[in-house]
């Protein structure tokens, strides 16, 4: 059995009080509870404060380019589908720069877990507006207030085919850990959007703000009803943030539908192709 210590790399460089600390702990405890080890785990990190978890979380990891973690994760899964695959990304990373990859990964139902640090601001570049910033939010890049409506990532995921959509709050690491654990256990594309205060640059969406505006979905919520889930997701525009699993259905994952992959042997481990008598007649 692995321990939280096994997953712990270098000392984090996040600001004191940053939501990333809680997320880091929640991820590690979920991994331990699932009996995973750093050697059985692929993580694709994005670029941003979230991506900087690369040095603090032990795994076989790609710390790639801003916005491009999801395709990295998809490639890793296809090459070795026996490994668990996470993408640890930020809101700008996943919903801005990499928005196209996000919607297509939902469509594909790739068996990866996307963990989004949604603090609604760009921290690492010192305080510009993120795609999830509320309309009118004033930042260094939008001093007169951002004109666009914020992205609604949960609805986006729901309507594009994600089979597991959850939201959590970085201030409640126990619940967050449960969401991450369920997301990893889910077969197919899973999203955990984490509402996360940025103490340094976002003075609006603070811990206090979220304490006031979040609520947990109770047992009466039907996880299999997409329209109900979308309704809950749209609460973002009324400052009502649902926490919990909004939606979960079982569907065949992308790699399970690739006929040349079999369940027992990964692409990496299969034998080399040798039957050229099947190919050469094509050229005659």
């Amino acid at each position: 059995m692995s321990t939280v210590q096994d997953f712990t790399g270098y000392q984090p460089t996040w600001c004191p009080g940053c939501g990333d600390w809680g997320i880091g702990i929640a991820i590690k405890s979920a991994l331990v509870q699932l009996g995973l080890s750093p050697s059985s785990l692929f993580v694709a990190f994005g670029i941003g404060c979230s991506g900087n978890m690369n040095d603090f979380l032990n795994a076989y990891a790609m710390h790639g380019l801003h916005g491009r973690s999801i395709p990295n994760a998809i490639g890793m899964k296809l090459a070795n589908h026996k490994m668990t695959v996470l993408a640890v990304v930020g809101d700008g990373d996943c919903y801005g720069e990499g928005g196209n990859h996000f919607l297509h990964a939902c469509r594909g139902n790739h068996d990866i877990t996307v963990i989004v640090h949604d603090n609604r601001v760009y921290g690492l570049t010192t305080g510009q507006s993120a795609p999830t910033a509320q309309k009118g939010y004033k930042s260094k890049s939008t001093p007169l207030g951002i004109i666009e409506e914020s992205v609604d990532p949960l609805s986006l995921a729901l309507t594009q085919g994600a089979t597991f959509v959850a939201q959590a709050f970085a201030g409640d690491t126990i619940h967050l850990g449960q969401m991450i654990k369920q997301a990893i256990e889910h077969k197919g594309f899973s999203l955990v959007n984490i509402l996360q205060p940025c103490l340094t640059f976002n003075k609006i969406n603070t811990y206090q703000y979220y304490m006031k505006h979040v609520y947990k979905l109770d047992d009466t919520h039907d996880k299999t009803n997409m329209l109900t889930a979308v309704n809950k997701a749209r609460g973002v525009y009324e400052e009502k943030y649902a926490l919990g699993v909004l939606y979960q259905v079982e569907k065949t994952a992308f790699h399970e539908q690739i006929v040349q992959l079999d369940s027992t042997t990964s692409l990496k481990d299969r034998d080399k192709f040798t039957d050229y008598n099947q190919l050469l007649p094509y050229f005659k």
């Binding site: 692929f42 790609m62 990295n72 490639g75 070795n80 196209n100 990859h101």
Partner: peptide
């Protein structure tokens, strides 16, 4: 061979880098 027609060229190369990192 796994042949993937991805959503754009950026996804294309990053998928391939993921595959290569993982050993294929």
């Amino acid at each position: 061979m796994v042949v993937r027609h991805a959503e754009d060229e950026i996804s294309v190369i990053n998928t391939a880098l993921g595959g290569s990192f993982a050993g294929v």
